[in-house]
């Protein structure tokens, strides 16, 4: 696994966002590099929800931040509406920003503790010059209502709200500028189960209402399964398997995807629980294994996996792309 190449890009249809060979590296002192993302390619069609799963350290959060340019990008391109986000700078970049918004993992820390939430939500209008006017105020209030926050509470500050409410406020802030793409980085993992469902429902509602395209990052496969149309499985900065959600969950081909599915407390019926016993620790992204990056833990690894990195290829003509030398063909 841990495949390279842009075989994961779909050949037909217009894509809203196309990421090609994206690599991100961070210096970690003593001239060493942490390979956070290595040659990641995928595409997202308009109105689609792409779920991105993987263990911590697989680069999924780095990917989110790279797409909206909160990180330095080493190489690769991010095509959005005919422009390459990876090379935009200064004001040009600033002007695309409202189109791609983000929901963060920690709902409370994503709101400024010293500002009233009305102003937090209206920040987008303040930045883009629509600060005054009844329209702006009505727009903010309408949005507050639609995410389920009473506009009367607008003068309160973040710490006076619960985690779930803070996440709603964060969603309202992101939606104010009418974005096309909403990147959700573990939006529900800090929330209680009962609140999690409310926020997931809200995201689905907002997606339909505002015609959003979602990138949904989560370590929780059940959550992703519920919300995503397509799934991308990542491991150590590489793509393992990407495709239609149903195909990934019902016919997982990659040993790592199978291991993930087998490890959840109520495992999927399609995989054997024993497959969840992938041994060993996640290797360090500073010194990733040669060949397939999953070879140190893969139960199916053969000689070739240690020598040659698998390329991503399409499975027949299905929406299912895979990077593995020894896939599980059932």
């Amino acid at each position: 696994m841990a495949g390279s190449g842009d075989g994961s890009l779909r050949s037909e249809g217009d894509m809203l966002l196309t990421v090609r060979h994206l690599s991100v590296e961070f210096p970690v002192g003593r001239k060493r590099l942490l390979y956070a993302l290595s040659g990641v390619s995928f595409d997202v069609a308009e109105g689609e929800t792409l779920g991105i799963v993987g263990e911590s350290g697989c680069g999924k959060s780095t990917l989110a931040k790279s797409i909206i340019r909160l990180n330095q990008i080493k190489s690769g391109s991010i095509e959005y509406q005919g422009r390459n986000l990876a090379t935009l700078r200064g004001d040009e970049l600033r002007r695309v920003r409202p189109d791609l918004q983000m929901i963060f993992q920690d709902p409370i820390s994503s709101l400024n503790p010293r500002r009233k939430i009305r102003n937090v939500i209206a920040e987008g209008l303040a930045i883009w010059g629509d600060r005054q006017g009844v329209w702006a105020r009505n727009h903010v209030e309408e949005l507050m209502v639609s995410v389920g926050i009473d506009p009367k509470l607008g003068d309160r500050r973040a710490h006076q709200f619960s985690g779930g409410q803070c996440q709603r406020i964060g969603i309202a802030r992101a939606l104010l500028l009418d974005p096309k793409v909403l990147i959700c980085d573990e939006p529900v993992s800090a929330l209680d189960v009962s609140v999690q469902a409310q926020v997931l429902n809200l995201l689905e509602d907002m997606k339909i209402r505002y015609g959003l395209t979602l990138l949904f990052i989560s370590h929780d496969l059940c959550v992703v399964r519920n919300i995503a149309d397509r799934i991308m499985v990542m491991y150590l900065g590489k793509v393992c398997e990407i495709g239609d959600a149903k195909a990934i969950f019902e016919h997982p081909k990659h040993p790592y995807t199978r291991a993930l599915l087998a490890a959840i407390p109520e495992p999927a019926p399609t995989v054997e629980v024993a497959e969840g016993d992938i041994s060993g620790e996640l290797p360090s992204p500073i010194d990733p294994p040669q060949g397939c990056r999953f070879n140190t833990r893969c139960p199916r690894a053969t000689e070739i996996c240690f020598i040659e990195e698998p390329l991503i290829t399409q499975l027949g003509d299905q929406d299912h792309y895979l990077a593995c030398h020894n896939p599980v063909i059932s």
Binding site: V193, A197, L221, C222, R225, N226, A228, A245, E266, P269
Partner: peptide, 8 residues
């Protein structure tokens, strides 16, 4: 709770 066996 979202489950694996419910439809997308």
């Amino acid at each position: 709770m979202p489950r694996l066996n419910t439809p997308i």
